[in-house]
Design a binder for these strands. Sequence first.
RNA 1: GGUCCGGUAGCUCAAUGGAUAGAGCAACUGAUUUCUAAUCAGUAGGUUACAGGUUCGACCCCUGUCCGGAUCACCA
Length: 621
Amino acid sequence: MTIISIIQKSVIEAVKSLYGVEIAEKDVLIAPTRKDFEGDYTITVFAFSKAAKKSPVQTGEEIGNFIKENAPQIDRFNVIQGFLNLVVSDAYWIDFLSNAQNDAQYGQLLPKNERVMVEYSSPNTNKPLHLGHIRNILLGWSTSKVLAAAGYDVVRTKVVNDRGIAICKSMLAWLLFGEGKTPQSEDIKGDHFVGYYYVQFEKEFQMEYKGWQSTDFALECVYDVKKKEGQSIDEFFKEYKNEYFNKYSELGAKAREMLLKWESGDAETVALWERMNGWVYEGFNETYKKLGVSFDKIYYESNTYMLGKDIIEDGLKSNVFYQKPDTSVWIDLTDVKLDHKLVLRSDGTSVYITQDIGMARLRDKEWHCQKVVYVVADEQNYHFQVLFEIMKKLGEPYANGLHHLSYGMVDLPTGKMKSREGTVVDADDLIAEVIQEAANNSAERGEVADFTMEEKAEINRRVGMAALKYHIVKVNPKKRMVFDPQESVDLQGQTGPYIQYSYVRINGVLKKAEKEGLNLKQAVPYETLEPQEKDLIFKIYEYPKAIEEAAATYDPSVIANYCYDLAKSFHKFWHDLSIFNADPEKSGEGVKIFRLQLSQMVGHVLKHGMDLLGIEMPERM
RNA sequence: GGUCCGGUAGCUCAAUGGAUAGAGCAACUGAUUUCUAAUCAGUAGGUUACAGGUUCGACCCCUGUCCGGAUCACCA
């Protein structure tokens, strides 16, 4: 039984026997005691003081005395205002530690016998990954790791948007201006290579558009006729871009023609499409590898974009959907405070959401997940609200397990990232930069100067990636975040490397212990904990709760902050108390072994926790 | 305009309705004969956007206002 439930039960008994009132477990508010007070757990007694018809302080005293009498695990207590602070006995903590130590899986919670699918990354194949994708990927990966640690059976997936007008733009530009070049011939990463032609297309298109804007036709037959009140020429044509692309643009016409050819299965077009997408995948895979993430199943939109129509037809029969006179199909979601939403065009073709409806059912057939987490930016909040409501109305059994892990956009200190203004931070560049920064710092410090080049490179990679990943994943997903590249390479303070460093310190003493032939498996007598020691044990004890919370809220930042707190406590412990030079007079013979065991356990939890964030620990740095 | 999400120290972020709102960065001051100073300790920094309300108790819940963002396509 956990100490929490021991305390809860004791309080329930206390209130019953002292005041004759029955309360439930959820009525017992129990929280870790604040730092400035003595105690491990605090119970808020205001609610009980009403039942007792006594002052909060008196009630606290009475309950405290009762618990102390009845629960041997509680050593002493104090009451301040309406707060009952309980001190758990050192014996309990020491006992807990030795048990945890024997559990090589500590941090892996019991199986929940539920499967959850995490969809993340889901890129377009027309340009390389950037900072925004990095947030998505890190969130998706760490969420999946957290869920797995919490006991779920996890399936990782992505849906590649490999078709549509965007990739056709790249294809067209490559045909027009590519001169037969390839990523190999130019020695460029495939996704960057294809992205270059996408940009090339946009440039050419802009030139064409600019030229067109000054024609009499554009000014007299378009601007004069369609402009809004007081709208300048520039403003108007900025808004008119898409319509121009579809109506008058030569390049636009060619791109659309290519899309039609692709859809009709034209062999040459499909071959080109496969070739260019192949280049992109090679590039993406390299980036995924650098980020240390993987997928169990990849879906391609080119295979799934026709899905969902049959469901719409069935739903039409069962009156979940309705048809307008123009034959387009809609759903009425006004009863759940949403709108009427189109699910099938009047020409019978699908829209974005049709596909998602079909995809949801397909994946249910293939995987039978009780839960599905969609890691997608918050600009699509409305889309997912609509999607989930539709699935509920269709009566899909898994509908209530669908969850949109919505995260805020990543801003730069200078403002929003805009591809047009060239302020997009490229994923590969950023990764290279943080690793380089780690290398610079490492060289300055000279701690690992005697290591081989390969070993140094590996350490720099781990440290640099830790800085980057931690910087991003420590922020609550739903918040928009400001990403300062300068700060992301910081190695001091609340950073990934700070946490790694505590692990490296632990590794150092463990190595030394090994050299001295110390047996860390032995049980040693130890009775009185130093505050720094208890702090560490307490935090180790709280680790499973952090995992549960992170899993329940789909929020890896809980783990990020937990790891920082634990590392901080360890650094403090390290600074204040010596391990090998511990004074045996004062602390007893077992102190050295005990502290090594404690350090080892901290190391285990830190490594485990950081792994949930996709961060690897170096042995030295 | 409707809907949704955010607003906490100069900056980046924490805080199951609980105690005196905490960290880090930046600034300043200290701590290496010792297991790695990528560390530790200290100083300074706040009307939690604003105004009401609910409560024994509100950064947190409710109402309104302001600011920022997203979204409201027969686009994806």
